[in-house]
Design a protein around this nucleic acid. Structure first.
Length: 577
RNA sequence: GGGCUUGGAGCCUAUGAGGUACAGGCGUGGGACUUUUAAUCCCGAGACAGAGGGUUCGAAUCCCUCCAAGCCCUCCA
């Protein structure tokens, strides 16, 4: 027995969901021992961290070491943050299990033998540049509809296939997040024969397989053969196998039209026979086959699978493969700015993009939250997420605990999974955005110090780390064009027109600046001049912001002007350049 | 049609195995820092937990009905 250190309340909780009958229309008469916990319950964790509950459920199965956690997606297009549920939900559970002394293997299957069903409207090249379908040879790509992703050429001509191209992109994002993941190609599993036993099991028990599936799906009739061969003539993953010869390890087929949603992929009509390694199992069988072949103990999945392929999959795992299905966990989908994430519709945020806007630990933090909650990823309001993380970090590190001890305990548990143990100095995100108005690193630091965001005794390294956020926040501000998007208009003077009083006041201010005064003095002078010329204070400041930022707002003007080179300021105040 | 998930102040995030929501943040109103903005500090307003029933001494937390959004019963994190 490993020493487990978690609250006793949790144990009670586990007992609860382990004993509950599965919430499906399973037709099986299995004993409770092989009934996996309800994947919704696994995602709910009461007062504990959800990954703890998942780890509990996994331990309840007495898994063999190493414990295998798996995720997977089809490489159908641009990998976006939603796909990372498959990676990061596993990651947190893996971390918990490691803490408990388990050996863990985190696996990701690229379901790359799935067929290309339709062309996405957008693609991303090997440099993560998003390009429209029109920018590649869409015609050539279109001729590959119906083929497995690994048989479709990479439209960018770099990788071996379309599937490999997008898998590579995803893998690189995983690497940027520094998550240890083993990638497995589904196509390779088929080609290497790793799936042979599973295929044999399905096809030699066709009647059982059919009956099982028919309990969950309509349209599974007598002639149904649960295998899709690749047509040797046109390369399409066909839908109609007509017979199998297990001794010869072949399957015969007719290459008929395939309906995929609204579209129909035309078959070439070829009738042929091919190897059982040249094709694939239908998803409903393939998933449990993966569990069996890879010895999967845990798998998170999107809510789209929760009511369909999960119940049938667990049933098939037990009854057909005689295998205990893994612990499943449902997660809700993210939205982007309130809209569904969709590669084809172009509502996509990639990990790469996000990491230009915030630190990896903030992104991980987003994924550490309750899985069943529908969450919006909002770039518009990204500052709120970062602020929330900063608070979370402070609580975890013990500086304060406004939310109570439970919250603190959780923070202390989760935080080490997000960030390294080095000292992190954080400048508030929106303030960092404002600092982006100047390119001068020294000036940035000075302003940050002046405003109290950098303590006297901060190490050089910590300061540098803190200022790294400025670039991210500035990118965010300029990308969203929000209120923090200040940019010093140094090279060219914005178009301005002021009334005569304002112009005179600006000239006097220029003269004052020319004399050489510190920031406070200049700030005071601005107020005095506004009074002397009977100008609205706000309006006069506004004139300054217009001149220097082409905006109505800006930083504390006097202090800021004092930091810039004097002649430039004087000239600009005189509207000369 | 059947099933599932989510639903807290203007917004975000918690809590959620029944026991008073003075919760935190953002935003907002006011004030302080010699006087607009950013930042910092103080104070204030703001929800009775989607709606309605029920169980209970007591429910945001259990049950029922309904509503909204999303998902599944073809493929899709």
């Amino acid at each position: 027995m490993p020493t487990l250190n978690y609250p006793s309340t949790l144990r009670k909780h586990n007992a609860r969901f382990c004993d509950e009958p599965m919430n499906t229309r399973s037709t099986s008469t299995d004993d409770s021992e092989s009934t996996p916990p309800d994947p919704y319950e696994v995602a709910r964790s009461g007062t504990a961290f959800w990954a703890d509950a998942a780890a509990d459920a996994i331990e309840a199965r007495n898994p063999e070491e190493p414990v295998v956690l798996k995720g997977g997606v089809s490489p159908s297009g641009i990998p976006h943050i939603g796909h990372f549920n498959e990676i990061l939900r596993c990651y947190f559970v893996a971390e918990v299990l490691r803490e408990r002394g388990h050996e863990v293997r985190q696996v990701f299957t690229s379901d790359d033998r799935d067929r290309l069903r339709k062309l996405p409207r957008q693609l991303a090249d090997e440099n993560w540049e998003i390009v429209g379908l029109g920018d590649v040879d869409a015609g050539a790509l279109g001729r590959n509809l119906g083929r497995p992703y690994t048989d479709v050429p990479d439209p960018f001509g770099e990788a071996d296939s379309y599937g490999e191209h997008f898998t590579n992109l995803l893998r690189r994002s995983v690497e940027r997040l520094d998550i240890p993941v083993e990638f497995v190609s589904n196509t390779e599993l088929y080609e290497s024969g790793a799936f042979d036993d599973a295929i044999r099991t399905v096809l030699s028990n066709r009647g059982t397989a059919r009956d099982l599936l028919a309990g969950y799906q309509d349209g599974v009739d007598e002639g149904y053969v649960p295998f899709f061969p690749v047509c040797e003539s046109c390369g399409t993953l066909t839908g109609t196998a007509t017979g199998v010869d297990l001794d010869a390890w072949t399957v015969s087929y007719v290459c008929e039209d395939i309906e995929t949603g609204d579209d129909v992929i035309e078959g070439c009509g070829h009738e042929g026979t091919t190897s059982l390694r040249n094709g694939k199992l239908p998803w409903r069988f393939e998933w449990p086959a993966q569990w069996d072949v890879l010895d999967v103990d845990f798998e998170p999945f999107g809510k789209d699978h929760a009511e369909g392929s999960w119940p049938s999959g667990t049933d098939i795992a037990r009854q057909l493969f005689d295998n205990d299905p893994p612990v499943g966990m449902v997660y809700e989908w993210f939205t982007l700015e309130g809209a569904a994430l969709s590669s084809s519709a172009g509502t996509v945020v990639t990990i790469d993009e996000v990491l230009d806007l915030l630190e990896p630990e903030v992104l991980l933090y987003f994924f550490s939250k309750r899985p069943l909650k529908q969450r919006d990823f909002s770039i518009e309001n990204l500052d709120q997420l970062v602020d929330e993380f900063d608070r979370f970090e402070r609580v975890a590190l013990g500086d304060s605990d406004p939310g109570g001890s439970d919250r603190k305990q959780r923070a202390q548990q989760v935080y080490p999974m997000l960030a390294d143990s080095e000292e992190h100095l954080r400048i508030p995100y929106t303030f960092a955005a404002v600092l982006g108005m100047t390119d001068d690193p020294d000036l940035r630091e000075e302003i940050a110090r002046r405003e109290g965001h950098i303590p006297e005794d901060a190490s050089e390294q910590a300061v540098a780390g803190a200022l790294d956020r400025v670039e991210q926040a500035r990118t965010w501000a300029s990308r969203t064009g929000n209120a923090f998007d200040y940019e010093l208009k140094r090279s060219q003077m914005p178009e301005v027109s002021f009334d005569p009083d304002t112009e005179q006041a600006l000239d006097e201010l220029a003269a004052f600046v020319a004399e050489g005064h510190d920031g406070d003095a200049i700030q005071n002078r601005i107020f005095e001049l506004a009074e002397e010329y009977d100008l609205e204070v706000g309006g006069f400041f506004g004139a300054g912001y217009r001149l220097f930022f082409d905006d109505t707002e800006g930083p504390k003007l006097g202090l800021f002007l004092a930091k810039l080179d004097r002649q430039f300021v004087v000239d600009r105040l005189r509207r000369q350049r």
